[in-house]
Write a protein that binds this DNA or RNA. Structure first.
Length: 399
DNA sequence: TCTGGGGTCCTAGGACCC
DNA sequence: TCTGGGGTCCTAGGACCC
């Protein structure tokens, strides 16, 4: 068996091709070879979550408004997102990866880094390893994946993108700059629309061109963090991708209305439902928080957020709701029309972390118990609707 | 053309304390 | 009386990613 010991570390980035669309085509063979678009229903507000390669030929891409996708390709198959199904397939595929290495870092439903360092005696060269993984996934699920290999996560991720679909691209030791210079600046991970605009203003249009700027200039122009990122990215220096454990966690739920709203009753009812969702998820994940956030987006698409941190933990949906209302009142004059409303918990902590409860202990303990009881019933499949929710729903419109 | 939903990280300013 | 500098926490907004 050949070995390629020239690799000091062997990182693979594995990415499922057009994942949601491919799963749907796999499940429903009559859609194979067709333009399939997963997302909001045509005619409704929403965007494309994912689409098949056949649909991409029409210029359709994810995050595009569905209304435009419909115009570009009226004959496409439009399907709703079936997240649960994709989750199941995702788990299956991650288990396949696990047969090749225990060192897996899953970064989204359809992507993972596999550290294959030191596995050459087991699986052969990086090419051979990549081909084996691709074959295993294809055989066991019928889905195709793209793999990028390099000595760093950053380059491996760019390489898998470069080879899409059904790709296997290897960035060889010593060829990092050669690989980067084949890419368009916009294809660099972490370089979004705004930064691209600023780079264009500075007459920087290529990865090579970006390398002409020294680190200090970039830090002065873009700030410490972004400047340092740009300097390293265009040189293929590891940027420490996904290496730091996420420190602040949050849970939020939001809704975009089909038509803009300025009816307080509607906003409050939706906020109540969202508050219950958020609290339910927090309990399910055994997290607690002292901070609440509210998000609003107005008809003109401008957004605002408001947040408040308390000295005690938030233990009930009612608390989220009532504080959300306060934040709503601080941000909304009652006349402008609202497109989106959302609420959430910030800076989550371990739910088991002991807490100091002083004054309102009794009231909080009571609420906590009620919430936990409701949660328990919900998870047992009982349909629980809070009395207040029910009342709100049947409450007659303002006289 | 008209823009979802769920996240993370960074920045900058203000409050407050030492 | 007016004056520092540093540290931490909170808040709002922005950029980016999947």
């Amino acid at each position: 068996m050949k070995t390629d010991s020239v690799f000091t570390s062997r990182i693979l980035h594995v990415d499922l091709d057009a994942f949601y669309a491919a799963v749907e085509q796999n499940e429903q063979p009559e859609y194979a070879g067709k333009a399939v678009i997963i997302g909001a229903a045509p005619g409704k507000r929403g965007v494309v979550s994912a689409c098949s390669y056949e649909a991409r030929k029409f210029g359709i891409h994810s995050a595009m408004p569905v209304s435009i996708a419909k115009r570009l390709c009226p004959e496409a198959v439009f399907l709703p997102v079936r997240m649960k199904l994709y989750q199941e397939v995702s788990v299956k595929i991650m288990n396949i990866f696990n047969e090749f290495t225990p060192d897996i870092c899953q970064i989204s439903i359809d992507e993972a880094f596999l550290d294959m360092t030191g596995t050459d005696r087991l699986f052969g060269t990086i090419e051979e390893t990549g081909m084996m993984i691709k074959k295993a996934v294809k055989d066991q699920t019928g889905l195709t994946i793209s793999i990028g290999a390099a000595e760093s996560r950053f380059l491996a991720k760019l390489a898998s993108d470069f080879g899409k679909p059904d790709g296997l691209h290897i960035v060889k030791h010593g060829d990092e700059l050669g690989f980067l210079d084949q890419l368009e600046l916009k294809d660099i991970w972490g370089l979004g629309k705004k930064t691209m605009e600023r780079l264009t203003d500075l007459n920087i249009t290529t990865v090579k061109g970006l390398r002409d700027f020294n680190e200090n200039s970039l830090k002065t122009i873009f700030g410490q963090s972004a400047g340092s990122f740009l300097f390293r990215a265009c040189r293929g220096i590891d940027i420490g991708m996904y290496e730091t454990a996420a420190k602040s966690n949050s849970i939020s739920n939001e809704t975009t209305f089909q038509e803009d709203v300025n009816d307080r009753d509607v906003l409050e009812l939706v906020l109540l439902e969202l508050s219950h969702h958020v609290m339910f998820r927090a309990l399910k994940e055994n997290k607690k928080s002292k901070s609440i956030s509210l998000k609003l987006r107005f008809s003109d698409f401008t957004s605002t957020t408001a947040q408040k941190t308390f000295s005690h933990y938030i233990h009930s949906a009612e608390e989220i709701y009532s504080h959300s209302i306060e934040l709503l009142n601080s941000r909304w004059n009652g006349s402008s029309t609202i497109r989106l409303i959302g609420t959430g918990l910030l800076s989550l902590e371990d739910g088991n972390k002991p807490e100091q409860t002083e004054l309102f202990e009794d009231a909080f303990e009571k609420k906590k118990k009620v919430e936990k009881a409701v949660f328990k019933l919900k998870t047992q499949g009982e349909k629980i609707t809070k009395a207040s929710l029910l009342n709100n729903k049947i409450k007659p419109k303002k006289e």
